[in-house]
């Protein structure tokens, strides 16, 4: 048993590979040789993990990946426990459908990070692509639990049909929080068009300004007490750049989406 398993890319990838075999809980019981024998997928061909990544350490719930991993997809998908650290940037589908454990990315992540996640946490120091914290096609619920923190920006369609959980980002592209049922999306900076369209419930917190959709109605300006508690907790746990003005400031509350049941909200922070 090692204190960690380190997987290092042997050579830059020329083509995308699928690496859903790499999840800390699945590696936790395996020796180095067994880990090397796990299958990665190059299109329709299986190849041995060991041919692509060098393996050091074994039987640990902490897995560290090193190298430019932007073409290594589905890492940590469906993981249930353990810690996955990515010393670089990750590919698509990082932590998709994960239900527990922690993922930390020093660089950026590709599309579909934390898609249909139900638990655990994911912290990305850089940016994330499209559909972070999104939903399976056709599923009534997207993210049903857990927390995603992206310090940089996320692409479009973030947090679609979120049912539970928290998603924080530095900035968000178009269509953030489509069809939310509940849960919280917090955007520190710029938010793209079409935010919160079709929401039934749920909160979208805009700390850096927002163009409120026509289908939301202004309700009031107030100091939401629950919000300062949540922001405090997030600041403490993830070192988010939330300052006292956000904690104690005034917010405009817009209710929507009025095409649906209108019980969602966009909370727009008011700079003083």
């Amino acid at each position: 048993m090692s204190d960690r398993i380190t997987l290092t890319l042997r050579a830059p990838l020329e083509r995308p590979l699928e690496a859903d075999a790499i999840a800390p809980d699945r590696l936790a019981t395996l020796g180095a040789r067994e880990i090397s024998a796990l299958q990665l997928w190059d299109g329709r061909n299986a190849i041995a993990l060991g041919d692509v990544l060098s393996v050091s350490g074994e039987r640990s719930q902490t897995v560290v990946l090193e190298g430019d991993l932007t073409m290594l997809h589905l890492v940590g998908s469906t993981m249930v426990a353990g810690t996955l650290e990515i010393a670089g940037s990750a590919g698509n589908g990082l932590g998709a459908r994960m239900s527990g454990g922690a993922i930390r990315v020093q660089g950026s992540a590709g599309d579909d990070a934390g898609s249909a996640m139900s638990g655990g946490s994911m912290v990305i120091d850089g940016d994330a692509g499209d559909r972070a914290g999104g939903a399976l096609q056709g599923a009534s619920k997207g993210m049903t639990g857990g927390e995603i923190v992206v310090r940089g920006s996320v692409g479009r369609d973030t947090g679609t049909r979120m049912r539970r959980g928290i998603l924080c980002c530095g900035a968000a592209g178009t269509g953030a929080g489509l069809g939310m049922i509940a849960g919280n999306i917090i955007v520190a900076g710029v938010i793209g068009e079409g935010v919160g369209a079709g929401n039934k419930r749920g909160s979208i917190v805009a700390l850096g300004g927002v163009s409120v959709p026509q289908t939301y109605a202004y309700a009031c300006t107030y100091r939401p007490p629950h919000l300062s508690l949540m922001l405090l907790s997030l600041r403490a746990r993830y070192a988010l750049p939330v300052d006292d003005a956000h904690l104690h400031g005034l917010y405009k509350r817009h209710s929507g989406d009025m095409a649906e049941i209108g019980k969602g909200e966009i909370l727009e922070w008011q700079a003083t």
Binding site: Q214, D257, A259
Partner: peptide, 18 residues
């Protein structure tokens, strides 16, 4: 169109919008 749809659906549910 977006607002029209929202207003139409709202009106069917008894909510006025737009």
């Amino acid at each position: 169109e977006t607002l029209f749809f929202a207003s139409l659906r709202g009106s069917l549910a008894g909510r006025s919008l737009g």
